[in-house]
Design a protein around this nucleic acid. Structure first.
Ligand SMILES: [Zn+2]
Length: 331
DNA sequence: AGCCTTTGACCAGCG
DNA sequence: TCGCTGGTCAAAGGC
């Protein structure tokens, strides 16, 4: 289980950081395979705030080291997207990661132990001692400054929900965060769009990797079954939308589908979804507000029933609108 | 002094 | 109209 930080812009989804704990290194790599293009995101590329999403590895997830090849280092020469491959070297990445780790002096539990994402030096990650899930960090460190203005116990969940507002003058973005006892974030709901850039470049060199997926593809030809994650989200950067978008990650391994343990919900701008995962690894939005959302594979199962899951697309990260217009609601 | 949380009160929507 | 619920306010306090 772990968490992924990602940002999205109108045409790409960027994995900014991946935090893993309680799993083995190999697993980490296995997961990353899904897309190895690790680059250091350029601030300019980042359009959204970092969003945290939890995920879990399927029980049957292959643990073989077969995927080792997708280490961060090697991915640096992959050319993708705007050709912006900042030479992301592992060093930076490590610094960044340890930096985060250090941020937490008091480690609640060992459960937070993390195995580092290996890079060039396969064994070097060891010393990263215990690590606290990022969710533990303040407000989940997404690059923006937030002021908490409330907390409530919501009926549905067992965990309290906290309300935050972006502190940037004139910016009305708010977010609701639900986190479990150990600080793990369970759900994040964003509302609005920032009208300013992310403040303080200070600690920003986060690891970034661009999700590229080819939908069917193979990036890891080699490993038999692997988790595949596709993303098909895109949204226009309109501001002032008021819909809820729910990002759910789900993937499948050998046909079994799995979904992430948590979802990230964003209330924001006009989400346009369309499952168009371009093979290029870039998702681009199409101008058509089609819903479709999801469902790459089969969408008939959601016959009106559990409205909550009808957005999950097997094997992909999909976006769904929670309160969207009716017409969008179904296809 | 200037942020920031915390916290109960308050409010609006809804059944 | 009442009461529940989720969201917000704002006073108090902390750092
Ligand atoms: Zn903002």
């Amino acid at each position: 289980m772990g968490q992924i930080y990602f940002t999205y812009s109108s045409h790409k989804l960027i994995i900014v950081d991946i935090i893993l704990f309680n799993i083995k290194k190999n697993a980490v790599l296995d997961f990353i395979w899904f897309h190895p293009i690790a680059i250091f995101a350029q601030e300019a590329d980042i359009e959204s705030e970092k969003t945290l999403m939890d995920f879990e590895f399927p029980a049957d997830f292959p643990k073989e080291a077969s995927v080792l090849k997708y280490d961060i280092a090697s991915s640096t020469d992959i050319n993708i997207l705007d050709g912006k491959i900042a030479n992301g070297n592992c060093d930076n990445m490590e610094i960044c990661l340890s930096d985060i780790a250090n941020n937490q002096s008091s480690v609640p539990e060992e459960s937070a132990k993390r195995d580092d994402i290996e890079t060039q030096h396969p064994l070097e990650g060891e010393q990263k001692g215990s690590y606290v899930p990022l969710g533990m960090l303040r407000t989940s460190e997404d690059g923006y400054n937030w002021r908490k203005y409330g907390q409530k116990q919501v009926k549905g969940s067992e965990y309290p929900r906290s309300y935050y507002k972006c502190t940037h003058p004139n910016c009305q973005v708010k977010k609701k965060v639900e986190r479990s006892l150990d600080g793990q974030i369970t759900e994040i709901i964003y509302k609005g769009a920032h009208n300013h850039a992310k403040p303080d470049p200070n600690r920003r060199a986060m690891l970034g990797s661009v999700l590229t997926l080819d939908d069917t593809s193979e990036v890891g030809e080699g490993c038999g079954n692997r988790a595949k994650v596709e993303a098909g989200l895109t949204w226009r950067n309109t501001q002032y939308g008021v819909k809820d978008i729910k990002l759910i990650s789900a993937w499948s391994v050998d046909g079994l589908e799995r979904t992430s343990s948590a979802s990230v919900v964003t209330e924001l701008s006009d989400p346009l979804l369309n499952p168009q995962g371009k093979a290029v690894g870039v998702f681009e939005s199409v101008g058509t507000p089609e819903l479709s959302s999801t469902l790459a594979s089969h969408d008939d199962d959601d016959a009106g029933g559990d409205d909550d899951d009808d957005h999950i697309t097997q094997g992909s990260i999909s976006v769904c609108i929670e309160d969207a217009e009716p017409e969008l609601k179904r296809r």
